[in-house]
Simulated assay, not measured.
Amino acid sequence: MTRDELHAAALALPGAHMDVQWGDDHVYKVAGKMFAATDGAYSNLAFKATDIAFEALTLGGRAIPAPYLARAKWVKFDDLAALDADEVRGWLATSHGLVAAKLTRKDRQGLGLT
């Protein structure tokens, strides 16, 4: 997946926006809550995963538990360019959905997620 494909896929999700924080990390959020992140060079990708996906991706060796966020079931891929674009779009949509589901009803309504 390319930098532009990741950026477009993440921002196409309802209410998604991108902030630059922690130096040059690009963090994708919904209502201020992170659902994916990459470094400024877009060389890696981290996102929130379901419990089953977290286990499958980390135990299968495809990804590692994301530093500082593993307890929240985040995974990290070290090579964004090696990932299949359609697969990443699905992971981003799932991650966005997991985070959006935890928002208040008011925030979800404001984003048109109800």
Rank of each mutant, 00 (worst) to 15 (best):
A12D: 14
F77K: 04
N44I: 05
A41H: 11
A101N: 07
H17I: 00
N44A: 13
S95N: 05
K73A: 12
E87D: 13
K33G: 05
D107S: 15
A66Q: 10
D25R: 11
L98Q: 06
R105D: 13
A37L: 15
L13S: 08
A63G: 07
E87P: 00
S95K: 04
G90R: 11
D78Y: 01
F47W: 11
K48C: 02
L11Y: 03
A36M: 02
A101D: 06
F47R: 04
L11R: 05
M1I: 07
T58L: 10
L13T: 08
L6H: 05
L59W: 01
D24S: 14
A16I: 10
T104P: 04
L13G: 00
V99P: 02
K33Y: 07
D78S: 11
L113T: 12
S95W: 08
L13Q: 06
G32F: 08
D39F: 01
I64S: 08
T104Y: 13
A36H: 13
L113V: 13
D24F: 05
R108K: 10
D107E: 15
K48F: 04
R71S: 14
A82F: 00
K106W: 00
D78L: 09
A41N: 11
R89C: 09
V99H: 01
A9S: 13
T38C: 15
D39K: 04
L98Y: 06
Q109D: 15
Y68S: 05
I52H: 14
R105G: 11
F47P: 03
D51P: 09
L83Y: 08
K33D: 10
A46N: 14
L103R: 05
G110N: 12
F77A: 00
G112H: 04
F35V: 06
I64L: 12
G32V: 09
E87W: 14
A9P: 02
D86R: 09
D86P: 00
G110T: 05
K48N: 01
T58E: 12
V20M: 07
D79K: 15
T58D: 14
V30N: 05
D84H: 11
A37F: 05
F35K: 03
L113A: 09
P67I: 12
A41Q: 15
Q21Y: 00
A37T: 07
D107V: 12
L13V: 02
G15F: 10
Q21N: 04
R108D: 05
A31L: 05
S43F: 02
A9M: 11
R108F: 06
G32Q: 02
E55F: 00
L69C: 05
K29F: 09
R3Q: 14
V88I: 15
H17R: 09
E87I: 00
T50K: 10
K48S: 03
G110R: 12
W22Q: 01
T94R: 02
T94Q: 07
D79T: 15
A93E: 12
D107K: 15
I64Y: 06
L113P: 10
A63Q: 12
R3T: 14
H7I: 00
